[in-house]
Protein backbone atom coordinates (compact mmCIF):
# COMPACT_ATOMS: atom_id res chain seq x y z
CA UNK A 1 0.00 0.00 0.00
CA UNK A 2 2.83 2.32 0.94
CA UNK A 3 4.42 1.68 -2.44
CA UNK A 4 1.17 2.44 -4.20
CA UNK A 5 0.91 5.69 -2.29
CA UNK A 6 4.47 6.58 -3.25
CA UNK A 7 3.71 5.74 -6.85
CA UNK A 8 0.65 7.97 -6.84
CA UNK A 9 2.65 10.76 -5.24
CA UNK A 10 5.36 10.41 -7.87
CA UNK A 11 2.75 10.56 -10.59
CA UNK A 12 1.17 13.62 -9.06
CA UNK A 13 4.52 15.36 -8.92
CA UNK A 14 5.48 14.37 -12.43
CA UNK A 15 2.09 15.05 -13.97
CA UNK A 16 0.18 17.76 -12.15
CA UNK A 17 -3.48 17.84 -13.14
CA UNK A 18 -3.97 19.63 -16.43
CA UNK A 19 -6.38 22.52 -16.05
CA UNK A 20 -8.31 21.42 -19.10
CA UNK A 21 -9.95 18.03 -19.26
CA UNK A 22 -8.96 15.69 -22.06
CA UNK A 23 -12.45 14.80 -23.15
CA UNK A 24 -13.16 12.58 -26.08
CA UNK A 25 -11.99 14.24 -29.30
CA UNK A 26 -15.35 14.32 -31.07
CA UNK A 27 -15.73 15.68 -34.63
CA UNK A 28 -17.54 18.70 -33.17
CA UNK A 29 -14.70 19.43 -30.79
CA UNK A 30 -12.18 19.39 -33.64
CA UNK A 31 -14.41 21.41 -36.01
CA UNK A 32 -15.12 24.02 -33.31
CA UNK A 33 -11.34 24.45 -33.12
CA UNK A 34 -11.48 26.04 -36.58
CA UNK A 35 -13.70 28.80 -35.08
CA UNK A 36 -11.40 29.35 -32.07
CA UNK A 37 -8.86 31.40 -34.03
CA UNK A 38 -11.32 34.33 -33.99
CA UNK A 39 -13.88 33.37 -31.30
CA UNK A 40 -11.40 32.14 -28.67
CA UNK A 41 -10.41 28.70 -27.46
CA UNK A 42 -13.56 26.62 -26.85
CA UNK A 43 -15.57 29.66 -27.97
CA UNK A 44 -14.47 31.85 -25.05
CA UNK A 45 -13.51 35.16 -26.66
CA UNK A 46 -11.04 37.55 -25.02
CA UNK A 47 -11.77 40.25 -27.65
CA UNK A 48 -14.73 42.14 -29.07
CA UNK A 49 -15.81 39.25 -31.30
CA UNK A 50 -18.63 37.40 -29.47
CA UNK A 51 -18.09 34.32 -27.30
CA UNK A 52 -19.89 31.21 -28.53
CA UNK A 53 -19.45 29.05 -25.41
CA UNK A 54 -22.64 28.32 -23.51
CA UNK A 55 -25.06 29.54 -26.18
CA UNK A 56 -27.81 27.05 -27.02
CA UNK A 57 -27.51 24.92 -30.13
CA UNK A 58 -30.75 26.38 -31.51
CA UNK A 59 -29.63 29.97 -30.94
CA UNK A 60 -26.27 29.38 -32.62
CA UNK A 61 -27.81 27.58 -35.61
CA UNK A 62 -30.50 30.24 -36.12
CA UNK A 63 -27.82 32.99 -36.11
CA UNK A 64 -25.84 31.04 -38.70
CA UNK A 65 -29.01 30.66 -40.83
CA UNK A 66 -29.60 34.42 -40.59
CA UNK A 67 -26.03 35.19 -41.63
CA UNK A 68 -26.41 32.85 -44.60
CA UNK A 69 -29.71 34.32 -45.84
CA UNK A 70 -28.50 37.88 -45.32
CA UNK A 71 -31.10 38.84 -42.71
CA UNK A 72 -28.38 39.29 -40.06
CA UNK A 73 -25.91 42.12 -40.80
CA UNK A 74 -22.23 41.25 -40.65
CA UNK A 75 -18.85 41.69 -42.27
CA UNK A 76 -17.29 38.25 -42.55
CA UNK A 77 -19.43 35.61 -40.83
CA UNK A 78 -21.85 35.05 -43.72
CA UNK A 79 -18.91 34.34 -46.02
CA UNK A 80 -17.44 31.83 -43.58
CA UNK A 81 -20.75 30.17 -42.63
CA UNK A 82 -21.32 29.18 -46.25
CA UNK A 83 -18.14 27.08 -46.18
CA UNK A 84 -19.43 24.51 -43.67
CA UNK A 85 -22.06 21.81 -44.23
CA UNK A 86 -25.27 21.83 -42.16
CA UNK A 87 -24.09 18.68 -40.38
CA UNK A 88 -20.72 20.28 -39.53
CA UNK A 89 -22.48 23.41 -38.23
CA UNK A 90 -24.75 21.27 -36.03
CA UNK A 91 -21.74 19.45 -34.56
CA UNK A 92 -19.96 22.75 -33.94
CA UNK A 93 -23.04 24.34 -32.33
CA UNK A 94 -23.58 21.32 -30.07
CA UNK A 95 -19.96 21.52 -28.92
CA UNK A 96 -20.17 25.24 -28.08
CA UNK A 97 -23.52 24.71 -26.33
CA UNK A 98 -21.83 22.14 -24.09
CA UNK A 99 -19.12 24.64 -23.00
CA UNK A 100 -19.68 26.65 -19.85
Amino acid sequence: MMRTANFLLACTLAFPVVSVSAADLTPGRYLAGTCASCHGTDGKSVGSVPSLAGQSTDSLLSKIAEFKDGSRPGTIMAQIAKGYTDEQMRQIAEFFASQK
Binding site: A36, S37, C38, H39, G40, S45, V46, G47, S48, V49, T75, I76
Partner: peptide, 9 residues
Protein backbone atom coordinates in the same frame (compact mmCIF):
# COMPACT_ATOMS: atom_id res chain seq x y z
CA UNK B 1 -12.27 42.93 -35.29
CA UNK B 2 -8.66 42.73 -36.43
CA UNK B 3 -7.38 43.63 -32.95
CA UNK B 4 -9.89 41.19 -31.44
CA UNK B 5 -8.63 38.54 -33.86
CA UNK B 6 -5.06 39.12 -32.67
CA UNK B 7 -5.97 38.84 -28.98
CA UNK B 8 -7.96 35.66 -29.54
CA UNK B 9 -5.54 33.86 -31.83
Amino acid sequence: YAFSWARNI
